[in-house]
Simulated scan of single mutants.
Amino acid sequence: MIENIGITATGIFFPENIETAKDLELKTGIPEDVIINKFGLYQKHVSNANLHASDMAIEAARPILTKIDPLEIDVIIYFGSPFKDYDVWPCAAKIQHELGAKNAYAFELMNVSSCFPIALKVAKDMLVSDESIRNILLVGGCKESYLIDYENHRSRFMFNFADGGAAALIGRNGKNRPLGSSIITDGSFHDDVKIPAGGSVLHSSGNSIKNRLHYLDVTDPQDMKERLDLVSVPNFVKVVNKAVQKSGYKLEDIDLLLPLHTKKSMHQELLKQLGLPEEQSIYLDHYGHMSALDPCIGLHIAQLKKQLNAGDLVVAVSAGTGYTWAATAIQWG
Protein backbone atom coordinates (compact mmCIF):
# COMPACT_ATOMS: atom_id res chain seq x y z
CA MET A 1 0.00 0.00 0.00
CA ILE A 2 1.26 3.49 -0.87
CA GLU A 3 0.02 4.74 2.52
CA ASN A 4 2.70 2.63 4.21
CA ILE A 5 5.62 3.87 2.10
CA GLY A 6 7.71 6.83 3.22
CA ILE A 7 11.12 8.47 3.41
CA THR A 8 12.65 7.15 6.62
CA ALA A 9 15.93 9.10 6.66
CA THR A 10 18.26 11.23 4.55
CA GLY A 11 22.00 11.90 4.57
CA ILE A 12 24.43 14.25 2.86
CA PHE A 13 28.19 14.60 2.53
CA PHE A 14 30.45 17.36 1.23
CA PRO A 15 34.22 17.38 0.77
CA GLU A 16 36.11 19.88 2.90
CA ASN A 17 37.58 21.96 0.09
CA ILE A 18 35.54 25.04 -0.88
CA GLU A 19 35.77 27.24 -3.96
CA THR A 20 34.29 30.70 -3.49
CA ALA A 21 32.83 33.05 -6.07
CA LYS A 22 36.13 34.92 -5.92
CA ASP A 23 38.04 31.74 -6.75
CA LEU A 24 35.71 31.15 -9.68
CA GLU A 25 36.25 34.70 -10.90
CA LEU A 26 39.94 33.92 -11.30
CA LYS A 27 39.12 30.73 -13.25
CA THR A 28 36.36 32.08 -15.48
CA GLY A 29 37.03 35.79 -15.83
CA ILE A 30 33.43 36.40 -14.72
CA PRO A 31 33.25 39.06 -11.95
CA GLU A 32 32.56 37.79 -8.44
CA ASP A 33 29.40 39.89 -8.06
CA VAL A 34 27.99 38.46 -11.32
CA ILE A 35 28.68 34.91 -10.13
CA ILE A 36 26.83 35.64 -6.88
CA ASN A 37 23.97 37.80 -8.13
CA LYS A 38 23.30 36.37 -11.61
CA PHE A 39 24.41 32.78 -11.30
CA GLY A 40 23.37 32.47 -7.64
CA LEU A 41 26.56 30.94 -6.30
CA TYR A 42 28.53 32.10 -3.27
CA GLN A 43 30.61 28.94 -2.99
CA LYS A 44 30.71 25.23 -3.75
CA HIS A 45 32.44 22.12 -2.44
CA VAL A 46 35.14 20.47 -4.55
CA SER A 47 36.71 17.09 -3.81
CA ASN A 48 40.38 16.22 -3.99
CA ALA A 49 41.91 13.74 -6.40
CA ASN A 50 41.45 10.81 -3.98
CA LEU A 51 37.72 11.27 -3.25
CA HIS A 52 35.37 9.90 -5.88
CA ALA A 53 31.63 9.74 -6.59
CA SER A 54 31.25 6.33 -4.97
CA ASP A 55 33.14 7.47 -1.85
CA MET A 56 30.92 10.52 -1.39
CA ALA A 57 27.79 8.42 -1.92
CA ILE A 58 28.97 5.99 0.75
CA GLU A 59 29.73 8.77 3.23
CA ALA A 60 26.28 10.31 2.68
CA ALA A 61 24.66 6.96 3.47
CA ARG A 62 26.65 6.20 6.63
CA PRO A 63 24.52 8.38 8.99
CA ILE A 64 21.43 6.50 7.81
CA LEU A 65 23.01 3.24 8.98
CA THR A 66 22.86 4.51 12.57
CA LYS A 67 19.06 4.21 12.21
CA ILE A 68 18.84 0.87 10.43
CA ASP A 69 20.81 -2.37 10.34
CA PRO A 70 22.52 -2.57 6.92
CA LEU A 71 21.27 -6.16 6.67
CA GLU A 72 17.68 -4.84 6.64
CA ILE A 73 18.28 -2.94 3.38
CA ASP A 74 16.84 -4.94 0.50
CA VAL A 75 17.72 -2.78 -2.48
CA ILE A 76 20.35 -0.11 -3.20
CA ILE A 77 19.75 2.22 -6.13
CA TYR A 78 22.56 4.53 -7.23
CA PHE A 79 20.98 7.64 -8.77
CA GLY A 80 24.01 9.94 -8.89
CA SER A 81 26.30 11.26 -11.57
CA PRO A 82 27.21 8.96 -14.48
CA PHE A 83 30.74 10.39 -14.13
CA LYS A 84 32.11 7.90 -11.62
CA ASP A 85 35.40 6.42 -10.46
CA TYR A 86 35.77 4.40 -13.67
CA ASP A 87 34.03 4.27 -17.02
CA VAL A 88 31.59 1.38 -17.66
CA TRP A 89 31.71 0.38 -14.01
CA PRO A 90 28.86 -0.31 -11.53
CA CYS A 91 29.65 1.69 -8.40
CA ALA A 92 26.40 0.42 -6.82
CA ALA A 93 28.15 -2.88 -6.11
CA LYS A 94 31.00 -1.10 -4.31
CA ILE A 95 28.49 0.90 -2.26
CA GLN A 96 26.62 -2.26 -1.25
CA HIS A 97 29.89 -3.90 -0.18
CA GLU A 98 31.30 -0.93 1.72
CA LEU A 99 28.05 -0.33 3.62
CA GLY A 100 27.78 -3.98 4.61
CA ALA A 101 24.33 -4.29 3.06
CA LYS A 102 24.92 -7.94 2.18
CA ASN A 103 21.24 -8.77 1.72
CA ALA A 104 20.61 -5.95 -0.77
CA TYR A 105 20.81 -6.21 -4.52
CA ALA A 106 22.16 -3.08 -6.15
CA PHE A 107 21.72 -1.35 -9.47
CA GLU A 108 22.12 2.08 -11.06
CA LEU A 109 19.51 4.47 -12.37
CA MET A 110 20.96 6.99 -14.81
CA ASN A 111 19.28 10.13 -16.09
CA VAL A 112 21.87 12.79 -15.20
CA SER A 113 20.47 15.75 -13.25
CA SER A 114 16.79 14.79 -13.40
CA CYS A 115 17.19 11.49 -11.59
CA PHE A 116 16.21 12.03 -7.92
CA PRO A 117 12.47 12.60 -8.51
CA ILE A 118 12.57 9.60 -10.86
CA ALA A 119 14.42 7.48 -8.27
CA LEU A 120 11.74 8.33 -5.69
CA LYS A 121 9.08 7.10 -8.10
CA VAL A 122 10.98 3.92 -8.91
CA ALA A 123 11.54 3.11 -5.22
CA LYS A 124 7.90 3.76 -4.37
CA ASP A 125 6.69 1.64 -7.30
CA MET A 126 9.02 -1.22 -6.33
CA LEU A 127 7.72 -1.22 -2.77
CA VAL A 128 4.12 -1.17 -4.01
CA SER A 129 4.66 -4.04 -6.45
CA ASP A 130 6.83 -6.31 -4.27
CA GLU A 131 5.78 -6.87 -0.66
CA SER A 132 9.03 -8.72 0.10
CA ILE A 133 10.97 -5.43 -0.19
CA ARG A 134 11.09 -3.55 3.10
CA ASN A 135 13.76 -0.89 2.63
CA ILE A 136 15.34 0.75 -0.42
CA LEU A 137 18.41 2.96 -0.14
CA LEU A 138 18.72 5.68 -2.76
CA VAL A 139 22.29 6.92 -2.88
CA GLY A 140 24.26 9.16 -5.19
CA GLY A 141 27.62 10.87 -5.59
CA CYS A 142 28.84 13.69 -7.79
CA LYS A 143 32.32 14.83 -8.82
CA GLU A 144 31.26 16.86 -11.83
CA SER A 145 33.39 19.86 -10.89
CA TYR A 146 36.13 17.86 -12.60
CA LEU A 147 34.24 17.92 -15.91
CA ILE A 148 34.51 21.67 -16.40
CA ASP A 149 37.05 22.93 -18.92
CA TYR A 150 37.65 26.55 -17.95
CA GLU A 151 39.48 27.06 -21.24
CA ASN A 152 36.33 26.20 -23.22
CA HIS A 153 34.15 29.28 -23.62
CA ARG A 154 31.25 27.14 -24.87
CA SER A 155 30.86 25.22 -21.64
CA ARG A 156 32.59 27.06 -18.80
CA PHE A 157 29.23 28.60 -17.78
CA MET A 158 28.63 25.26 -16.04
CA PHE A 159 31.09 26.31 -13.34
CA ASN A 160 28.33 25.80 -10.74
CA PHE A 161 28.94 22.04 -10.97
CA ALA A 162 30.08 20.89 -7.54
CA ASP A 163 30.88 17.73 -5.59
CA GLY A 164 29.09 15.84 -2.83
CA GLY A 165 26.95 12.89 -1.83
CA ALA A 166 23.31 12.35 -0.90
CA ALA A 167 21.16 9.45 0.26
CA ALA A 168 17.57 8.69 1.20
CA LEU A 169 16.05 5.58 2.77
CA ILE A 170 12.59 4.61 1.54
CA GLY A 171 10.68 2.09 3.59
CA ARG A 172 7.35 1.04 5.06
CA ASN A 173 7.11 3.63 7.83
CA GLY A 174 3.92 5.40 6.73
CA LYS A 175 5.43 8.90 7.04
CA ASN A 176 6.90 11.35 4.52
CA ARG A 177 5.12 9.63 1.64
CA PRO A 178 6.22 9.97 -1.99
CA LEU A 179 3.04 10.62 -3.96
CA GLY A 180 2.51 11.45 -7.63
CA SER A 181 5.26 11.99 -10.18
CA SER A 182 5.46 13.59 -13.60
CA ILE A 183 8.23 13.34 -16.21
CA ILE A 184 8.72 15.05 -19.57
CA THR A 185 11.47 14.24 -22.07
CA ASP A 186 12.27 16.39 -25.10
CA GLY A 187 14.82 14.39 -27.05
CA SER A 188 15.51 17.21 -29.50
CA PHE A 189 18.19 18.33 -27.02
CA HIS A 190 19.97 14.96 -27.05
CA ASP A 191 23.07 16.20 -28.87
CA ASP A 192 23.58 19.56 -27.16
CA VAL A 193 25.64 18.64 -24.09
CA LYS A 194 28.07 15.75 -23.85
CA ILE A 195 31.64 14.64 -23.23
CA PRO A 196 32.79 14.12 -26.86
CA ALA A 197 35.41 11.42 -26.30
CA GLY A 198 35.43 8.15 -24.38
CA GLY A 199 32.37 6.50 -25.90
CA SER A 200 31.95 4.30 -28.95
CA VAL A 201 31.66 7.27 -31.33
CA LEU A 202 35.05 8.68 -30.42
CA HIS A 203 37.41 6.38 -28.56
CA SER A 204 39.90 7.74 -26.04
CA SER A 205 43.22 8.46 -27.67
CA GLY A 206 46.25 10.67 -27.47
CA ASN A 207 44.50 13.12 -29.78
CA SER A 208 41.31 13.20 -27.69
CA ILE A 209 43.38 14.04 -24.61
CA LYS A 210 45.46 16.62 -26.47
CA ASN A 211 42.31 18.29 -27.82
CA ARG A 212 40.64 18.31 -24.36
CA LEU A 213 37.69 16.20 -25.48
CA HIS A 214 37.13 14.52 -22.12
CA TYR A 215 35.33 17.48 -20.56
CA LEU A 216 31.72 18.60 -20.90
CA ASP A 217 31.12 20.48 -24.12
CA VAL A 218 28.16 22.33 -25.60
CA THR A 219 27.82 22.02 -29.37
CA ASP A 220 26.18 25.45 -29.90
CA PRO A 221 25.45 27.35 -26.67
CA GLN A 222 23.43 30.14 -28.29
CA ASP A 223 21.25 27.76 -30.27
CA MET A 224 20.63 25.58 -27.21
CA LYS A 225 19.79 28.63 -25.08
CA GLU A 226 17.29 29.95 -27.60
CA ARG A 227 15.49 26.60 -27.84
CA LEU A 228 15.72 25.78 -24.13
CA ASP A 229 14.52 29.19 -22.92
CA LEU A 230 11.22 28.58 -24.70
CA VAL A 231 10.44 25.33 -22.91
CA SER A 232 12.48 25.06 -19.71
CA VAL A 233 10.40 26.95 -17.13
CA PRO A 234 7.08 25.91 -18.78
CA ASN A 235 8.14 22.26 -18.53
CA PHE A 236 9.21 22.71 -14.91
CA VAL A 237 5.76 24.13 -14.18
CA LYS A 238 4.05 21.32 -16.11
CA VAL A 239 5.76 18.49 -14.20
CA VAL A 240 5.25 20.18 -10.83
CA ASN A 241 1.59 20.86 -11.59
CA LYS A 242 0.92 17.34 -12.84
CA ALA A 243 2.74 15.68 -9.93
CA VAL A 244 0.71 17.77 -7.49
CA GLN A 245 -2.58 17.07 -9.29
CA LYS A 246 -1.88 13.32 -9.40
CA SER A 247 -1.35 13.54 -5.63
CA GLY A 248 -4.78 15.13 -5.07
CA TYR A 249 -3.51 18.67 -4.49
CA LYS A 250 -3.28 22.04 -6.27
CA LEU A 251 -0.29 24.32 -6.87
CA GLU A 252 -1.41 26.63 -4.06
CA ASP A 253 -1.10 23.69 -1.63
CA ILE A 254 2.70 23.47 -2.08
CA ASP A 255 4.56 24.29 1.12
CA LEU A 256 8.14 23.74 -0.04
CA LEU A 257 9.89 23.35 -3.39
CA LEU A 258 13.15 21.40 -3.70
CA PRO A 259 14.65 22.33 -7.10
CA LEU A 260 18.02 21.77 -8.67
CA HIS A 261 20.46 24.67 -8.55
CA THR A 262 20.02 27.02 -11.51
CA LYS A 263 20.91 30.63 -12.22
CA LYS A 264 19.00 33.01 -9.98
CA SER A 265 16.69 34.43 -12.67
CA MET A 266 15.41 30.97 -13.62
CA HIS A 267 14.86 30.05 -9.98
CA GLN A 268 12.91 33.25 -9.38
CA GLU A 269 10.84 32.84 -12.55
CA LEU A 270 9.94 29.28 -11.57
CA LEU A 271 8.80 30.45 -8.14
CA LYS A 272 6.79 33.24 -9.75
CA GLN A 273 5.07 30.84 -12.14
CA LEU A 274 4.23 28.51 -9.24
CA GLY A 275 3.07 31.36 -6.99
CA LEU A 276 5.66 30.65 -4.31
CA PRO A 277 7.77 33.10 -2.26
CA GLU A 278 11.52 32.49 -2.01
CA GLU A 279 11.26 31.27 1.58
CA GLN A 280 9.22 28.32 0.33
CA SER A 281 12.12 26.85 -1.61
CA ILE A 282 15.63 25.61 -0.93
CA TYR A 283 18.14 27.44 -3.13
CA LEU A 284 21.59 25.86 -3.07
CA ASP A 285 23.60 29.07 -3.48
CA HIS A 286 26.26 27.82 -1.03
CA TYR A 287 26.49 24.37 -2.61
CA GLY A 288 26.06 24.62 -6.38
CA HIS A 289 24.75 21.96 -8.72
CA MET A 290 25.53 18.30 -8.03
CA SER A 291 23.91 16.40 -10.89
CA ALA A 292 20.83 14.51 -9.60
CA LEU A 293 21.63 15.13 -5.94
CA ASP A 294 20.22 18.66 -5.56
CA PRO A 295 16.60 17.93 -4.48
CA CYS A 296 17.76 15.22 -2.05
CA ILE A 297 20.28 17.62 -0.54
CA GLY A 298 17.57 20.27 -0.36
CA LEU A 299 15.31 17.83 1.50
CA HIS A 300 18.00 17.15 4.08
CA ILE A 301 18.80 20.85 4.51
CA ALA A 302 15.09 21.63 4.96
CA GLN A 303 14.98 19.15 7.84
CA LEU A 304 18.08 20.69 9.44
CA LYS A 305 16.50 24.14 9.16
CA LYS A 306 13.21 22.82 10.57
CA GLN A 307 11.32 24.03 7.51
CA LEU A 308 9.13 20.93 7.33
CA ASN A 309 5.96 20.40 9.33
CA ALA A 310 3.52 17.50 9.53
CA GLY A 311 1.14 17.62 6.59
CA ASP A 312 3.35 19.80 4.37
CA LEU A 313 3.27 19.22 0.64
CA VAL A 314 6.83 19.13 -0.68
CA VAL A 315 7.85 18.84 -4.34
CA ALA A 316 11.24 17.61 -5.54
CA VAL A 317 11.86 18.88 -9.06
CA SER A 318 14.83 18.70 -11.36
CA ALA A 319 15.92 18.59 -15.00
CA GLY A 320 18.80 17.06 -16.89
CA THR A 321 20.42 17.41 -20.26
CA GLY A 322 18.91 15.29 -22.93
CA TYR A 323 16.46 16.89 -21.91
CA THR A 324 14.22 15.55 -19.12
CA TRP A 325 12.18 17.40 -16.49
CA ALA A 326 10.90 15.43 -13.49
CA ALA A 327 8.95 16.10 -10.29
CA THR A 328 7.70 13.99 -7.39
CA ALA A 329 5.38 15.25 -4.67
CA ILE A 330 5.93 14.25 -1.04
CA GLN A 331 3.43 14.48 1.82
CA TRP A 332 5.57 15.20 4.86
CA GLY A 333 4.91 13.93 8.35
Rank of each mutant, 00 (worst) to 15 (best):
E3A: 07
E3C: 02
I5V: 08
P15H: 00
P15S: 02
E19M: 13
E19G: 05
D23S: 02
L24V: 03
E25F: 00
K38I: 09
K38N: 13
G40S: 04
Q43N: 10
H45L: 06
H45M: 05
H45C: 04
V46H: 06
V46A: 12
A49P: 00
A49C: 01
A53I: 03
D55Y: 03
A57H: 04
A61T: 10
R62S: 11
R62L: 15
I68L: 15
I76D: 05
D85F: 00
V88F: 14
H97M: 12
L99Q: 08
N103M: 12
Y105I: 14
F107P: 12
L109I: 10
S114G: 14
C115F: 01
P117R: 10
L120M: 11
L120T: 06
K121A: 02
I133W: 00
N135S: 10
Y146Q: 15
I148F: 07
N152C: 11
F157Y: 09
M158N: 12
M158T: 11
N160W: 08
A166R: 07
A167N: 03
R172A: 12
P178S: 08
D186E: 07
D186F: 02
G187T: 02
G187N: 05
V193G: 09
K194N: 11
P196T: 07
H203T: 11
S208V: 09
I209C: 07
K210I: 13
N211S: 14
Y215A: 05
T219A: 14
T219D: 14
T219C: 09
D220T: 00
E226Q: 13
S232H: 15
F236W: 05
F236L: 11
V237R: 06
V237N: 08
V244E: 06
G248D: 13
K250V: 11
L251T: 13
L257S: 08
L257N: 10
L258K: 05
P259L: 05
K264W: 11
M266L: 14
L270S: 08
P277K: 08
I282D: 03
I282C: 04
Y283C: 09
L284W: 06
D285N: 15
H286R: 15
L293N: 02
L304W: 05
V315L: 09
A316Y: 01
G322P: 00
W325Y: 13
W332F: 15
